[in-house]
Computed example of a mutant assay.
Amino acid sequence: MIPAKAIDHRVARGTREDDPDSRPSGFTVFVKHKPLLILALALAIFHLGNAAIVPLYGLAVVAAKEANGPSFVATTIVVAQGVMVVASIVGMRAAESRNYWPVVLVSFLALPARGVLAYWITGWWGVLPVQILDGVGAGLQSVAVPGMVVRSMNGTGRINLGQGAVITVQGIGASLSPALGGWIAQWIGYQPTFLGGFGLIAVALYRVCIGRQELLNNIRNPKTFPPIASDW
Rank of each mutant, 00 (worst) to 15 (best):
T76C: 15
L109M: 15
A204T: 11
I89F: 12
T75D: 13
G123A: 13
S177Q: 09
T76L: 15
T75V: 15
Q191K: 13
Q131W: 03
M84Y: 01
T76R: 08
S152C: 13
A165R: 07
Q186W: 04
V145R: 02
V143R: 06
W187F: 09
A110L: 09
G173E: 10
G171S: 14
L111S: 13
F108N: 08
T75H: 11
S177F: 11
G196W: 00
G189F: 04
V166R: 05
V116Y: 00
Q191T: 03
L195M: 02
T122A: 12
R207W: 15
R158M: 05
Q141K: 11
E96I: 06
L133P: 00
V90Y: 00
V90D: 02
M84F: 01
Y206P: 02
A74M: 12
A87S: 15
Y190F: 11
L133F: 09
G155K: 00
F194W: 04
I184A: 10
A144L: 00
F198D: 08
T76F: 12
V106D: 09
G164T: 08
W125E: 14
A144D: 01
Y190L: 04
G123E: 10
G182C: 11
V78W: 07
G199I: 04
V136W: 08
V145P: 02
G126V: 03
V203G: 02
V169G: 12
L205M: 14
Q163K: 04
S88P: 02
A110W: 05
G139M: 14
A118F: 05
V136Y: 09
Q186I: 04
Q163Y: 05
V104Y: 04
P192F: 09
Y119V: 08
L117K: 02
P178S: 14
P70N: 15
A110G: 08
N99H: 10
A95E: 02
G199T: 06
L133C: 06
I132L: 14
A110D: 11
R93W: 04
A95K: 01
I132R: 07
W187N: 06
L180Q: 06
F194L: 10
A80G: 01
I121Q: 07
F72R: 07
G147Q: 02
A80T: 07
F72V: 11
F72A: 13
Y206A: 04
V166Y: 01
Y119S: 06
F198S: 10
P192M: 05
L111D: 11
V73M: 14
Y119C: 01
I77V: 14
L133V: 07
V145D: 03
V103A: 01
